[in-house]
Amino acid sequence: MSTYRIRQGDTLWALASRFKTSVSALARLNKISNPNLIYAGNSLRISGHARSDSFESAKGGGARGGSGTKRAGGSRGSGHVDGSRGAGSPGQATAAMRKLASAGRAAAMSLGGYNSQGLCATGVSRAIQNAFGFKVWGNGNQIDNNLPRDKFKQVHMSLAEALKIPGLVLTWEKTSSRAGSIYGHTAITTGDGRSSVSDFIERNTLGAGGRTGLKIFMPTL
């Protein structure tokens, strides 16, 4: 039995693959209730692995799992590390974040302007491609699973906080509309504290009701 110190950017899925075990085995051994959430700095117990590859002696408890409900239809065992409790103030936004916010606004204006076309994932994917040169596939509630983990990290904050920061990717599992209950919704924050962009510019994202399963991702390029 050896212990690995979780680093920012690690995922439970990637660690299971790296150490030739399974997500369920790691979650069971470490009493992780939510495999989609692990924490940087905590220790992860690995059964049957030689002490190497940045392993450390076990000191205290194992990795801490999240207490939230596992997202229905989400990526099982993706285990995003909660490396920060926020992406900083608008003035601290990175160049990549500002670039994505600008590309998001341009994509929204080219698709629907201020009127939704039902193509939110198309708008977000186009913005990411124009900003960074690669495409992310999937609908509104699939994009979060397809964002490259070496280029985006999940951050944990309220929607109100996120809307003050430009260039964050928002994803919801479901919305109140018929299509949204199936495909969810995704958008990019503009940083003005109110609006977000996808296939259109939504003036009051904070006031949009009936959305559940919010996740927030920050580009790390």
Results as ranks from 00 to 15, higher is better:
residue 63 A to S: 00
residue 64 R to C: 00
residue 65 G to A: 03
residue 66 G to E: 07
residue 66 G to Y: 09
residue 67 S to L: 12
residue 68 G to W: 03
residue 68 G to K: 10
residue 68 G to R: 11
residue 68 G to Q: 10
residue 69 T to G: 02
residue 69 T to W: 01
residue 70 K to M: 12
residue 70 K to I: 12
residue 71 R to H: 01
residue 72 A to R: 12
residue 72 A to S: 14
residue 73 G to K: 09
residue 73 G to D: 14
residue 75 S to N: 13
residue 75 S to F: 15
residue 76 R to Y: 15
residue 76 R to N: 09
residue 76 R to P: 10
residue 77 G to C: 00
residue 78 S to P: 01
residue 79 G to L: 03
residue 80 H to I: 02
residue 81 V to T: 15
residue 81 V to L: 11
residue 81 V to A: 14
residue 82 D to P: 00
residue 82 D to C: 11
residue 82 D to K: 14
residue 82 D to A: 13
residue 85 R to Y: 15
residue 85 R to C: 11
residue 85 R to G: 15
residue 86 G to E: 10
residue 86 G to V: 05
residue 87 A to W: 12
residue 87 A to S: 15
residue 88 G to D: 06
residue 88 G to M: 03
residue 89 S to V: 07
residue 89 S to Y: 06
residue 90 P to V: 04
residue 90 P to T: 09
residue 90 P to F: 08
residue 90 P to C: 02
residue 91 G to M: 07
residue 91 G to K: 13
residue 92 Q to S: 15
residue 92 Q to D: 15
residue 92 Q to G: 13
residue 93 A to D: 09
residue 94 T to F: 05
residue 95 A to H: 11
residue 96 A to F: 00
residue 96 A to S: 08
residue 97 M to P: 02
residue 97 M to D: 10
residue 98 R to N: 15
residue 99 K to Y: 14
residue 99 K to A: 15
residue 101 A to M: 00
residue 101 A to H: 00
residue 101 A to Q: 05
residue 101 A to N: 01
residue 102 S to H: 00
residue 102 S to V: 00
residue 103 A to P: 03
residue 104 G to A: 00
residue 105 R to E: 06
residue 105 R to L: 10
residue 106 A to M: 05
residue 106 A to V: 09
residue 107 A to Q: 12
residue 108 A to M: 10
residue 108 A to C: 04
residue 108 A to K: 06
residue 109 M to N: 11
residue 109 M to R: 11
residue 110 S to L: 04
residue 111 L to K: 12
residue 112 G to R: 07
residue 112 G to P: 07
residue 112 G to V: 12
residue 112 G to Q: 08
residue 113 G to Y: 06
residue 114 Y to R: 11
residue 114 Y to I: 04
residue 115 N to W: 04
residue 115 N to V: 13
residue 115 N to T: 14
residue 115 N to K: 12
residue 115 N to M: 05
residue 115 N to I: 08
